[in-house]
Design a protein around this nucleic acid. Structure first.
Length: 270
DNA sequence: AGCTCTTCCTGAAAGC
DNA sequence: TGCTTTCAGGAAGAGC
């Protein structure tokens, strides 16, 4: 499932492959996945791709015609490129034809993902409620956003309005690295430890990006290449395996309705 | 404010 | 073996 590192991988791949390209036409195979601003209508053509940006788990593809595509892959969204004579992959919902004749296709078996086609005068902004990106906020900002909340650490870190980009995998990995129990109240953790956690978070996310992200179930980049970082997970989906720090068996619990993996010895509740 | 539950969806895995 | 049920989860919304 794509979280910050995986979205970063896809953003980089699309930025590279779309550079300077224009989109001539698009096809919708399944309505509801591609959303247009109801007030701005369908914007003009997507002329000359300039760059892709990432905010949390959102990707923004910017064109010089001032149109932009905002993408959230959710669980199973993925892009691939195809020639007009190669068949569609199953669950392809939207396609964009480039000026090279090639098609940029979006597939998403579970159809949770969304693509917003926005123009400068669009009133909708899917990014409006996002907190700062997990790799772009300062250490003091990180500490400030977490420290005075009474919520449990895990749901707090998963909340995209607090910090954008972390999902179930990287929250579990981060809490383990920081030796913090997912159900601990945020305001019970000393600021110094939260400061260390900021560093651990940056290190974790950068390492995951360097390894192509985590391919759990279905994540692939735009060339169908699997990430590698799932092989380095220390707790996520590793129930019954020994903790690499202390050898205690990893335990699966449920926190905020999410499967959660911890080392019961390294991550004490209090 | 923050918790829990529900909805959206399909494919993989578990259960029988 | 093959059918049926459960589970996975990001985000939004409801209800408390």
């Amino acid at each position: 499932m794509p979280e910050l590192p995986e979205v970063e991988i896809v953003t980089r791949a699309l930025s590279r492959k779309l550079k300077g390209r224009s989109i001539l036409e698009h096809r919708v195979h399944h309505p509801g996945v591609l959303l247009h601003d109801p007030h701005a209508g369908l914007g003009g053509p997507l002329r000359r791709f300039e760059r892709g940006e990432r905010h949390g788990k959102y990707m923004v593809l910017k064109f010089s015609s001032e149109q932009r595509l905002v993408v959230h892959l959710r669980m199973t969204g993925a892009f691939y490129f195809r020639d007009s004579d190669t068949p569609l992959q199953p669950h392809t919902h939207v396609e964009f034809q480039l000026d090279t004749g090639e098609w940029l296709a979006y597939r998403d078996p579970r159809r949770f993902g969304r693509i917003w086609w926005l123009s400068p005068n669009s009133s909708t902004n899917p990014l409006a409620d996002l907190g700062p990106d997990a790799l772009r906020l300062s250490q003091p900002e990180w500490v400030a956003r977490i420290s005075e909340r009474s919520r449990m650490m895990k749901p707090l870190l998963l909340d995209q309005a607090v910090i954008a980009g972390l999902g179930n995998i990287y929250v579990d990995e981060l809490l383990h690295r920081s030796r913090i129990h997912p159900q601990r109240a945020a305001d019970s953790i000393p600021a110094a430890r939260l400061g260390e956690m900021w560093s651990a978070c940056r290190e974790l996310l950068r390492l995951a990006i360097r390894n192509g992200g985590s391919s759990i179930r279905s994540f692939v980049d735009t060339d169908g290449i699997l990430g590698n970082y799932q092989n380095f997970h220390l707790v996520y989906a590793r129930e019954g395996e020994p903790c690499t720090t202390c050898g205690t068996l990893i335990k699966r619990i449920v926190v905020a309705q999410r499967g959660t993996w911890i080392c019961p010895r390294c991550q004490r509740r209090r």
